[in-house]
């Protein structure tokens, strides 16, 4: 099977190329894309990509697989390549490439840090845990599961255009995770930090984020909730 991999090593290459590698796949097994990459790296150890948990929970191996962002470790070959087809791997779009499939994610992390991604509650904690009803806890479902793989933000045109000003779907999902947490007392402060023309309002509801999230989360809905909270606070 032919695997086309985006190759670029700044030490030696002037510009990136797409390199075709022939990889022998076992016939009886539907490998994950990450397994195929590992086979390619066996042939050519200079192929570079990130990976860790290989089960879709650490978020290391987000990449562009045949045109769609996804996690290589939980994307079966059968779902992306038709028989006789070619596997095409590129780095996540919109971020600077460090080497091959590895992108520089600093700006993505910076947007995450901007939303103060930690619980703020200045009241003294009780001797045991803070109580929270199962209903209130359920408000965090679909939010806290984010693995920061950046598949969503790097699939978002608004993030491509203003990666330094628009928080992006991943960061905003986490912003809402803390706004929705009944234990957090900093709603006013959090909302004030988001009420500029870029941080939240560059979301145009394109929903590319929802289409690619490997964990099935819905950042667009969370952004809608943030907007509603801003309106409520503003009126």
């Amino acid at each position: 099977m032919l695997v086309s991999i985006y190759r670029y090593n700044p030490d030696t290459d002037e510009k990136p190329i797409m390199q075709d590698v022939e990889v022998q796949l076992p016939e009886d097994k539907d490998l994950m894309v990450l397994d195929v990459l590992a086979l390619a790296k066996q042939q050519d150890p200079s192929v570079v990509y990130r990976r860790s948990c290989r089960e879709g929970v650490c978020g290391s191996d987000g990449m562009n697989i045949n045109g769609n962002n996804g996690l290589a470790c939980i994307t079966p070959m059968s779902s992306v390549v038709k028989p006789g087809g070619k596997l095409v791997l590129r780095p996540l779009p919109g971020l600077p490439v460090i080497r091959d499939l590895v992108v520089d994610m600093s700006i993505f992390y910076k947007q995450y840090e901007k939303i103060k991604p930690y619980l703020i509650n200045d009241t003294a904690p009780p001797a045991i845990e803070r109580l929270q009803s199962p209903e209130d806890r359920a408000k965090l479902d679909g939010l806290y599961e984010c693995i920061l793989c950046a598949c969503c933000s790097t699939n978002c045109p608004s993030f491509w255009w203003n990666p330094d000003k628009f928080i992006g779907p991943a960061g905003l999902l986490q912003a809402y995770r803390f706004l929705a947490d009944t234990r957090d007392t900093a709603d006013v402060e959090r909302l004030a930090g988001l009420d500029d023309p870029f941080s939240v309002f560059r979301c145009r509801g394109i929903m590319n984020c929802v289409a690619v999230c490997p964990k099935g989360l819905n950042p667009t809905r969370a952004i809608g909730h943030i907007r509603s909270m801003l309106i409520q606070q503003g009126t």
Partner: peptide, 20 residues
């Protein structure tokens, strides 16, 4: 130690009485 984690924001599942 576990209570400290909860105070830091760890989203534990809850019982009907609101405890972990």
């Amino acid at each position: 130690t576990v209570f400290e984690l909860e105070h830091m924001g760890l989203p534990f599942s809850r019982t009907e009485s609101g405890r972990i």
